[in-house]
């Protein structure tokens, strides 16, 4: 097998405090990281390569001007080269547009396997990677927990309700990674130094010749309501215990 492409997205750090300003989610002072689920995809690609199962791992990211930071983190983990589709000129895009760009960018390199995260923790659509597979005309399986490649066949496992499903599928194919697929490595200091010298190609929308306009339109962003104040139960212990059990069952619906 030759080349593995890993699609990654730069997202807000999980600890970021989300604020809305001017109708948009503000990225003011927010730390950006590689989407945690994409780290599983990167790790899997690197493991396959290290086991002799691939020659090269290419990282592709469709994103704004800071996306190269995420790509370089993946390069520091050990990926070979990166492609950044710089969409900062595009304004707001939807999953359809993102998938078109991602697919076109993936198609600029030879690939036998495409890996991505199961979900991006920011908008949580779980659509872009699998839609890119559609555009590329290759099969896909989502949320995999195990991946084995033998010749031109991949065997993957995924968790389904009450058990595990094992699927055999010809490659090239696209898989999205679920937490548990592996333990992503941290980039080493040597890796960080090497990343500086690795190829990172920047493509503009014009370079890819994609003609796509968003099919959906976000009307509004709103923050979840502030947490309501706690409830204090007073009275005899036996009564409050019964009351608590009732509330936990009927209101909180946790028991």
């Amino acid at each position: 097998m030759g080349n593995i492409v890993v699609a990654i997205k730069q997202v807000f750090d999980t600890e970021a405090v989300i604020a809305i300003s001017g109708g948009k989610i503000s990225d003011q002072g927010v730390k950006l990281v590689v989407n945690p689920f994409d780290e599983f995809a990167i790790e899997e690609a690197l493991k396959i390569k290290e086991a002799g199962g691939a020659d090269e791992v290419t990282i592709v990211s469709v994103g704004g001007e800071k996306a190269p930071e995420a790509i370089r983190t993946a390069l520091a983990m050990g990926a070979d080269k990166g492609i950044h589709v710089d969409i900062s000129s595009l304004g707001v895009i939807d999953e359809f547009v993102a998938a078109e760009y991602l697919a076109k960018a993936i198609a600029t390199v030879p690939y036998d396997l495409v890996l991505a995260g199961r979900i991006a923790i920011d908008d949580g659509s779980s659509q872009v990677a699998v839609r890119a597979a559609e555009v590329l005309g290759i099969p896909s399986v989502s949320s995999i927990l195990k991946l084995d490649i033998a010749g031109s066949t991949a065997t993957v496992s995924r968790e389904i309700d009450g058990g595990t499903e094992t699927i055999e599928i010809p490659i090239p194919a696209l898989f999205t990674a679920q937490k548990g697929l592996n333990e992503p490595r941290l980039p080493s200091m040597m890796g960080i130094m090497k990343a500086k010298k690795k190829d990172l190609t920047v493509l503009t929308p014009a370079d890819l010749g994609v003609d796509a306009t968003a099919k959906s339109n976000v009307l509004e962003y709103s923050l979840p309501p502030a947490r309501a104040a706690g409830k204090k139960l007073t009275g005899e212990a036996a009564d409050t215990a019964a009351e608590l059990a009732k509330l936990l069952r009927e209101e909180a619906k946790v028991i």
Binding site: E69, R72, T73, L186, M189
Partner: peptide, 17 residues
Amino acid sequence: TEEQQMVQDMAKRFAED
């Protein structure tokens, strides 16, 4: 720098994990 930022992130994660 971007590399130093990566060093910081990595060391922090290493220490936490």
